[in-house]
């Protein structure tokens, strides 16, 4: 009987070749679109799920009232991270990102060629505590503690040195002036990460951090992420955040939230 169904279907297709083509092609396009949409949605919903601590990480945003203009930004002042960790016991660690844009990157040595690299972040040494990307070479805890150290992705290690092992301990030159030693190589971050980073330069000794006023309301250039302790809830964190407002500036200037 099944054979009969196929017989009828095939004869029908052959009898109406044009319409069959339109129908099958249309169905194929429809199914393909559906699959693509499903894959896209699955990818969107998977954002940052690679991080097992994702549900414990919050980013500080700032509501800034500047001459009557209310601005809500995902960045905050340089001292917000350290202040919050000090004030709120629920917060286990903080990590700041500073994005200075693209860099010209080359290996140290004469006659080396520069490459423009766009995915470049300057981060606190706690980066791998908050975002536990897989470390292939080096030590996650200590790799960004020293000034002028850099952790690079596997793909960039292979691009510049051939392999992660070969990259370790090498010196790289950024914008023809800053030298940094490769202290770790990490597996490339998944495409479902909300930030992209092929280079993680240590923030230790960063001039902007050292010279910026330690106020919440100024120098809002840093993305500040907080890792909450396992027993802390976001609600508690919101409520507890109240005392830390305006400690330094004298007025409420930034608050902790998701």
């Amino acid at each position: 009987m099944i054979r009969n169904f196929f017989k009828i279907a095939i004869r029908n297709l052959l009898k109406h070749k044009g319409f069959s083509f339109i129908n099958i092609f249309g169905l194929a396009v429809g199914i393909a679109c559906t699959l693509l949409i499903c894959l896209y949605i699955a990818h969107e919903l998977s954002y940052d799920r690679w991080n097992p601590q994702a549900d414990r990480i919050v980013r500080v945003y700032s509501d800034i009232n500047f001459g009557g203009n209310l601005m809500r930004m995902a960045v905050s002042g340089v001292s917000v991270g350290p202040d919050v960790v000090r004030e709120l016991p629920e917060v286990q660690a903080f990590c700041r990102f500073r994005d200075y844009g693209s860099y010209l990157v080359k290996r140290d040595g004469d006659g080396q060629q520069n490459f423009k690299e766009n995915e470049f972040l300057t981060v606190d040494s706690s980066f791998f505590e908050v975002f536990p990307a897989k470390i292939l070479e080096g030590d996650a805890r200590s790799c960004l503690v020293e000034p002028n150290t850099v952790a690079i992705s596997k793909s960039r290690a292979e691009k510049y040195y051939g392999s992660p092992q070969m990259a370790m301990g090498q010196t790289m030159v950024f914008d023809n002036r800053t030298r940094a030693k490769v202290t770790a190589v990490y597996a490339d971050l998944p495409s479902s990460s909300h930030f992209k980073a092929q280079f993680l330069l240590s923030m230790t000794g960063n001039e902007e951090v050292a010279t910026s006023p330690q106020l919440w309301a100024v120098s809002n250039n840093f993305h500040t992420y907080l890792l909450l302790r396992e027993d802390a809830s976001l609600t508690i964190s919101r409520r507890s955040s109240m005392p830390c407002q305006g400690k330094r500036s004298g007025k409420p200037a930034a608050r902790c939230s998701e």
Binding site: M1, N4, K7, I8, R11, N12, K15
Partner: peptide, 17 residues
Amino acid sequence: LIDELTVFENIELPLLY
């Protein structure tokens, strides 16, 4: 009748069931 089946196949159909 089923247009895609021959006379023989149309008559045969109930026997398949």
